[in-house]
Design a binder for these strands. Structure first.
Lengths: 174, 174
DNA sequence: TTGATAAGTTCCTAATGGAGACTTAATATA
DNA sequence: TATATTAAGTCTCCATTAGGAACTTATCAA
């Protein structure tokens, strides 16, 4: 059976997972961020089979996360660079790493720390509201239907949630 | 072939991906955050097969993300609640949603917005340094080996990166 | 001439993913 | 009383995918 595709769902998380919700995707991206940009380097470091690596790199290029560029002519050799869309995944990666550090470190502390150039400290990611700068947590936000949302979708969620109203309704939803 | 397991790697992202790096994991977690906590609700909303949903829920419970609790006796019925570890994924979810909104919205705008209770605005996640509050981006952090890291691992990355020094070395790494 | 390296391709098999039918236990309805 | 419905799963089957390993191509080095 083909894997279910989420690309068309009216949900940003679904569409994002369609691209990065895969065992290897973030591993590859993380390594590219660390400077491991070439096929052989990735293969050796990730212990991934050539076939799967080829497929994954192809997908990430097709989806616009990576850019495959030739870095020498003879013989032709390529490396993979993050596109702006890929670079913009860095905050997600940091948020994920913070979660992993907090809950899965086995008591040994973070395997890798990131020193923030601005302040010189080993930084941990904090996710805040872009407007007011306060923390964003599960308990201080309320979902509502956005401009790209669809009422049937919201209604389906509310039905699945047992009829409780989940969303604030925007005025235009007559 | 069994999927490669990342749980033992000395990398927080790998360990995190071992749990949430799967097509359905974040979809389920997202729905639980929205209040869809029961088997049938999830199945209907996600259009996931019963078998796969059973497996995924079992895994998320085993990994400590969800808690399965009985909410009525006769007949026995259960629902899934986020554990503290699961609730703590919310910032990651918000960071991922922001990325999806920015790059994958097809020009229609965010399908779901989150209103921040503190400031009343539709919030977007911003990932900042927990120390100084400035943005964290790919270009303003420098990785270094942390207390839970291992030299051979760091060396493997530097070799894969073509010999360039990637990590700042902590003093104790003689 | 042999070897090494980078970057893939191809082939094979085992395991996973998904559809859908079946199960169980209780309540609601005709 | 008989039938339907709902929640929450099992179970079976088959197509697809994952991963290992061997093979390919092109070039430079010894």
């Amino acid at each position: 059976m083909k894997r279910t595709q989420f690309a068309d769902q009216p949900c940003s998380v679904a569409r994002a997972m369609d691209i990065v919700g895969e065992l290897w995707a973030f591993m590859i991206i993380r390594n590219v961020f660390l400077g491991v940009r070439r096929f052989e380097g990735l293969r050796a470091n990730l212990a991934i089979s050539r076939k799967v690596l080829t497929e994954r790199l192809g997908l990430l290029v097709a989806r616009g996360i990576l850019d495959r560029r030739q870095y020498q002519d003879r013989p032709p050799r390529h490396e993979y660079r993050l596109t702006p869309m890929g670079v913009d995944l860095f905050p997600v990666l940091m948020a994920l790493a913070r979660w992993g550090d907090r809950w899965l470190d086995g008591g040994t502390g973070a395997p890798i720390e990131f020193v923030h150039r601005k302040c010189g400290q080993a930084t941990t990611a904090r996710v805040v509201c872009a407007h007011c700068g306060e923390d964003i947590g599960a308990h201080n936000v309320q979902p509502r239907l956005g401009p790209g949302g669809e009422m049937p979708y919201a209604e389906a969620i509310e039905q699945a949630a047992g009829g409780r109203q989940v969303f604030l309704r925007p005025a235009r939803a007559a």
